[in-house]
Design a protein around this nucleic acid. Structure first.
Lengths: 105, 105
DNA sequence: CAAATATATAAGCCGATACTTATGTTTTGT
DNA sequence: ACAAAACATAAGTATCGGCTTATATATTTG
């Protein structure tokens, strides 16, 4: 039961969450992120540093560009945490069944 | 897809997250929470106000005590959000199957 | 090597936030 | 009605967080 507060904090800023969600579509260099979000390059780098320290993203250097991507299992702490509070999930069994069916074909 | 940042922010403070998790075990009055956490009563009330504004908890007055509880469906936004990123879940199908089996008996 | 490119880091500013103490509001008990 | 209890709100303060500008580091290119 690691404290999830740091993870939540990492995702609590709209810009940072936006960057993170964008990364779920695939790796991206800082440059490209800076172009897509209306943020300065240092601001993007700082957000990425926070995400990295929270264990949410991976970094890969290629030449002079640095590519960030969502870490596999990034959501593991969240999923584990949520699984302890199933009683408060919405229409839980139905939703999960639907999820499984979408995932398995 | 509503922005989840405010929800994450509400859970990003360790004290507040602790209070929230404690509430998942059942309703509790401000007094009792104040006793269990090393926080002043106003601090607890302020945290509860944040949780309430984030739609995470319910309030019920009984006499001069006010009972807070986790809102049913409190995790709905989180579950919905996570469901969009299944690719980054850990051993996803197995985990969900296990979950379902624990939930259905 | 020098210049340009891509990114990271440093320092500072300012608004947000988590706490404190003090006070207000509602309800109970006598 | 009055005092106490349970909680909320107000106001002040100190720290944190996200931004900016400026600079440092790493890599490629000429």
């Amino acid at each position: 039961m690691p404290t999830l507060a740091p993870l939540f904090k990492a995702l609590s800023d709209p810009s940072r969450l936006g960057i993170f969600e964008r990364l779920t579509r695939g790796e991206m260099a800082v440059m490209e992120l800076t172009a897509q979000f209306e943020l300065s390059q240092p601001a993007v780098s700082q957000h990425l540093a926070v995400l990295r320290q929270a264990g949410l993203v991976t970094v890969r250097r290629d030449g002079r560009m640095v590519y960030y991507g969502v870490r596999p299992d990034a959501f593991r702490p969240l999923v584990d945490w949520l699984s302890h509070y199933q009683a408060f999930w919405p229409r839980r069994v139905d939703r999960l069944k639907a999820l499984l069916e979408r995932m398995e074909p």
